[in-house]
Simulated scan of single mutants.
Amino acid sequence: MGIGVGILLLVIGLILTLGAVDLPDAITDVVDTSTVGWICLIVGGLAIVLALVMNQQRTRTKHVEERRHG
C-alpha cells in the first residue's frame, strides 16, 4: 500500500464515521458504518506511516558494485 491508498482510506473512513453520506437501509442494517469508518481511518493512517518509513529506508540504501578479476 502506498501513500495514495492510505489517503483514500482516510477519506472513506471520515465519510463513513461522520455520516456525510446516507447509505441505503440494506447496508446499514448489516454493517455499522461508524465502526467500518474507524477501521478505515486506522488502516489508512498506518498505511501512510508505513509508506513513509519504507520510502525513508529506500533513500538510505547504498548499492555497491563489486568486480572480481580472475
Rank of each mutant, 00 (worst) to 15 (best):
L8G: 12
T59Y: 13
L10R: 02
W38A: 10
I27H: 03
A47H: 06
N55G: 08
L46G: 06
A26V: 10
D32I: 06
L14M: 09
T28L: 00
T61W: 02
L8N: 08
L16V: 00
A26F: 13
A26S: 13
L9D: 05
D25P: 11
N55S: 12
G19R: 03
P24E: 08
G13V: 00
A51H: 06
T28K: 04
A47F: 13
I42V: 14
I42E: 02
V36H: 12
L41A: 09
T17D: 03
I39F: 08
N55M: 12
T33E: 12
L14D: 05
T35W: 07
A26P: 00
W38L: 13
A47W: 01
Q56A: 15
D32M: 03
C40R: 02
P24D: 07
V21Y: 06
D22I: 05
I27N: 00
L50K: 05
D29N: 13
S34I: 14
V21M: 09
L9R: 06
V49H: 03
A20D: 10
S34N: 15
I12T: 12
G37Q: 02
L52G: 04
L46E: 12
T17I: 02
I42Y: 03
I27W: 06
A26K: 01
V30F: 09
A20F: 14
T59I: 09
T61H: 08
I48M: 07
G44Y: 00
T59C: 03
L46C: 13
V31Q: 05
L46V: 04
L9S: 12
Q57D: 01
L18S: 14
G45K: 01
L10F: 08
V11D: 10
D29C: 02
P24S: 05
V36S: 13
V11I: 06
G44T: 02
L18C: 07
L50S: 15
T28A: 03
I42S: 14
D25Q: 11
G45L: 05
L46P: 06
L9N: 04
L52T: 05
A51S: 15
